[in-house]
Write a protein that binds this DNA or RNA. Structure first.
Lengths: 360, 360
DNA sequence: CCTAGGATTGAGACCGGACTCACATCGATT
DNA sequence: AATCGATGTGAGTCCGGTCTCAATCCTAGG
């Protein structure tokens, strides 16, 4: 309308007040819908606001209410559909309650995570949802919690940190699916994860991620219950990029005592593992059985369709957001963290190993 | 450390100044690293800040600098890996330049988009990246642009809106891939998209999305160049959820004059189409050829691997963020929008139709 | 007709930094 | 020794809202 050739200045309450011929305080009350305002004034102010196309400055508002109506979300990698779905659950829920979401990626790097948390805190978000890269280095999270700012953990637990956590019972599902493989005749069961560690896996090694640690424990329990021993040499960590995953896969399958089944720690890893298997001209499940965490839609399209461990990712996102918002709004928290259940979906990628090695 | 049993009050410059025995102005200068400050004062202030664990309030800072170091990103659906990847490109780039990202989902709904833009503007983001749900209803975007706030469009163009746009040349790739299908002997080529319209597709119908519209134009040109006519009855829009996509697929393949090739408008649609084809016990490419937009990793794992149209999604996210930040920082924009190129990746899902219908 | 008490209203403080301005300080110049 | 420009420094304003507080207006009860 008017000359916006020059530098644009936002319309403020003061402008509206002037136009409506009332004091700034009255205009603010009418606009902010608080305090006592006569119908006459309210009308004039609202009309003036409309006319001037007034939009409140949320920053200013946040500054003296102390509420930003924004929650910070820190995840390892949104590119990973697992987090994509969870994020969707979070944003949907947040929007429904009038909250916005600031998203930060950490690339599963704790230093980046510490930084992300700091930035979010500086921006005075009302609360945080973090999928911690490490279940051990949680000092920064502890500080958030101690400062009194609402915090909810997603996907991974942080032992010793008394914070509401939304995660699935990994030990249980890992035990069940390992048992399923053992019952199918497998003894050489491999597990591949991106988890970064200093050296190769050794029995009893402390693992930085509760998720991986719990899965290891579940596997171990399954083996122990079957009077077998968990083959430590088949637990492979540090599977960074696609190439290293393929390399690990080849190695697992071409050794003298090859793995007869492979469990991929997530969908991204699974992708590369399956690709490597195809490249070796081996077939699933005849030559090697395959199982992976995350039930992505495409797992139904491969030949054979893949047996997977489905996690209610979207619902977990929703639950995390709901729990956080409940905390922000000062409502009571349920006493215990509700445990989400993963489910083994048996499709076609698991079968008995080619030559059943009687006993072990 | 100290009693945070009571309500937590943030440490401010004033607190630091008091502790360092200097004026608030001096403390602010030392902390903000501007103006002239003696070494002595700086040291004392920094020490006091450290001691008190001072953290600047970014809200307050933003309020009088006018810069929030935050960019708003509005996409249709992060759950869709296409946007997941693009978002990753954006956030990576933003972080590198010290910007944060507020993400809002619109579910491809223009009303939600209008709202999202308003919210972000109210939060005084420094700029916006929007993947507009509609290339027609762009009034809200025009207002953003006119208000002088930096804006970059992603993926879809908005004709008549002179805004930097990062998108691929859809008409071209659509033409090329359609020609490829025609040359393979196909005449009955179907195209399935989620685009919502009032009724079924009719020739010359205006399409709300530049992306879809351009693809239609490309197909049409390919047909015209081959002296053929684009089969309007095979352009299917309004493919909302998985179930409706499957229904459309079945219908396309079970009619008297079935489609011999199907092009899916994106990876999510492709998933359901392939599933429906498998459920009909038809095989690709013997019974029907298949082509889809978006080159997701899993397309290499299906049998056969899928022929796809790869788009440099991550790079586009990076480009969008770079362009936006350049605008924010007041640097010159390159004169023209760089056009990104999609690429037809021929894998195994396209072959000659079963019975070549000589001519048409 | 007078007055108590609730409804309105305006002035101004405040949130937490950034920044302007006037006033020192001080070594260097002439 | 007087002058000058380059720092240093503190008081105070501003950003754009929210909110307190005291003053004013009205209206009904006595």
């Amino acid at each position: 309308m008017n000359s916006d050739a020059s530098r644009r200045r936002d319309v403020t309450v003061a402008d509206v007040a002037r136009a409506a011929q009332v004091s700034k305080a009255q205009a603010a009350r009418a606009l902010g819908n608080y305090g006592a305002v006569s119908d006459d004034v309210r009308e004039r102010v609202l009309a003036a606001a409309e006319e001037l196309d007034y939009r409140p400055n949320e920053l200013a508002r946040s500054m003296n209410t102390g509420k930003s109506h924004t929650i910070g979300v820190v995840v390892g990698d949104i590119e990973n559909p697992h987090f994509g779905l969870a994020t969707r659950g979070i944003t949907d829920t947040a929007k429904r309650s009038g909250f916005n979401v600031i998203l930060i990626n950490t690339d599963e790097d704790t230093a980046a995570e510490i930084d992300a948390v700091r930035v979010l805190l500086d921006k005075r978000v009302d609360g945080l949802i973090v999928a911690p890269a490490s279940s051990v280095e949680t000092h920064h999270l502890r500080r958030v919690h101690e400062s009194g700012r609402p915090l909810v953990l997603l996907d991974r637990k942080a032992p010793g940190l008394d914070v509401h956590t939304v995660a699935v019972d990994m030990e249980g599902i890992s035990h069940d699916s390992t048992t399923y493989l053992i019952n199918s005749g497998h003894r050489r069961i491999a597990f591949i994860s991106t988890l970064r560690t200093d050296g190769p896996y050794r029995d009893g090694m402390p693992l930085d991620s509760s998720q991986i640690s719990d899965r290891r424990d579940g596997m171990k329990r399954a083996f122990v219950e079957a009077d077998l021993e968990l083959p430590d040499d088949l637990i492979r960590l540090n599977a960074g990029d696609a190439e290293s995953i393929k390399k690990i896969t080849r190695e697992l399958l071409q050794r003298p005592d090859p793995a007869t089944a492979i469990i991929a720690s997530d969908g991204l890893i699974g992708l590369s593992v399956v690709e490597a298997i195809q490249e070796l001209d081996l077939s699933i499940p005849q030559d090697v059985s395959f199982l992976m965490y995350d039930d992505f839609a495409w797992t139904r399209l491969t030949t054979p369709p893949l047996t997977v461990i489905a996690q209610p990712v979207y619902d977990m996102g929703v639950a995390a957001a709901e729990a956080l918002i409940r905390q922000i709004e000062g409502r009571k928290m349920p006493a215990a963290d509700p445990e989400f259940m993963a489910e083994l979906i048996r499709r076609g990628s698991v079968a008995a190993p080619k030559a059943i090695d009687v006993d072990h």
